[in-house]
Design a protein around this nucleic acid. Structure first.
Lengths: 205, 205
DNA sequence: GACTATAGCAACCGACCGTTCGGACGCTAA
DNA sequence: TTAGCGTCCGAACGGTCGGTTGCTATAGTC
């Protein structure tokens, strides 16, 4: 009950470390996140930081989990109450774009960055990144198929094709925002998604 | 004229260093490319390598240039003789997809990787990466506008919007190939490009 | 043949990396 | 009072990083 009781003590040191780690790794990458820098920024010793995780790889996996919780809260949770199928698919895409527009992670989409950083390697971190994309893609695919089944998309629409394209639009948005800082891209992304999820004969094979 | 005359001597040591650097940096990133590793793989000393460039940043810029030459030779040169406008735009997209399909760089698109690695930083390398994307985008935009002007795309098509979408398709292809190794994506990308560059009312604002 | 420029080498520098270790501190339960 | 536990620290480890320095060997030029 001392007045010097810090946020770290209140929320738990481990949680504080992870919050800071997500911010750093979003900009510098999961490999660019160093224990020394983390310790300095948190006013801790390196061993004090590492003691909570055991190894840098374990820290990276924990950071990935934390970032996943953020993404889930920002993109998935707001949409889970919406009617499945086309309404939810539309809301999902809007939440996805908004998540980039608002700059939830300072370095853009955390997982796209992690994917590019680890796609040429092997190991637990790479596997975890891939698994997250598999999960996310499966969710999009499920809603797309529901929309097709409900007749909200033309019967000839290939769900995998459409999800591939939606993913591309969001990646293009992420890229344009991060590298060029051009916020026009938000408009382009919304317009393209609207076109794809409206009457969209282009999606027919 | 010694019998020990090596390939490096014939082609120039600097050029040999750059060739190897492009291969490494494509997988490990421009920052993950280290002078020590480069020296070891080339059977040289670190100072022997660094002497050709002066600093790591200068090496990174030279590697970026070399990668740019490769991209130009693979994607731009084969298309430069084709009739401007829609025919060239189509050929450009096909060459772009083919460049990823054939795995010209072992780590996927060199520049997309570099963009993600440097978009959160400042400096000469980041500026060079951004400049390359500006140039490439300008080329796509020029051909798109020619196609619109020639009536090969509906008059209502927004060229910037279309280029944004084409870029996304290629980025989605790159991502799917590198992270998931799913070659179906090549088909999806070709089909989507065909849809966008055919009769494509979805591109109308 | 002497002079100069270049290429490359071995050795080394300070900085930082991830990781390990022994120990100090505060809390809780016996 | 004492024992034990979780948390964190400071110091140090071996290793790698980018970069510097001084040297040698070679090639070309006067």
């Amino acid at each position: 009950m001392s007045p010097r009781r810090s946020v770290a003590e209140a929320l738990g040191t481990r949680s504080t470390i992870l919050d800071r780690s997500v911010g750093i790794a979003s900009v510098e990458g999961l490999e660019g996140l160093t224990i020394g820098r983390l310790a300095t920024e948190l006013g801790m010793s390196k061993s004090g930081v590492l003691g909570h995780f055991g190894s840098k790889e374990a820290l990276q996996l924990a950071v990935l989990d934390r970032a996943g919780e953020v993404f889930r809260a920002e993109v998935w949770e707001p949409v889970v109450r919406i009617e499945p199928g086309m309404p939810r698919l539309r809301a999902l895409c809007e939440a996805w774009i908004s998540y980039l527009e608002r700059g939830v992670f300072p370095g853009g989409c955390f997982f796209v960055a992690a994917a590019h950083e680890f796609d040429g390697r092997a190991g637990a971190v790479r596997d975890a990144v891939e698994a997250r994309f598999d999960t996310w893609r499966a969710r999009l695919l499920k809603e797309t198929r529901r929309a097709v089944a409900a007749g909200d998309l033309p019967g000839g629409v290939d769900a995998e094709q459409l999800v591939f394209e939606l993913h591309g639009l969001v990646m293009s948005l992420n890229h344009t925002l991060q590298l060029h800082g051009d916020r026009q891209a938000v408009t382009w992304a919304r317009r393209a998604v609207r076109a794809r999820l409206g009457i969209s004969p282009a999606a027919i094979s």
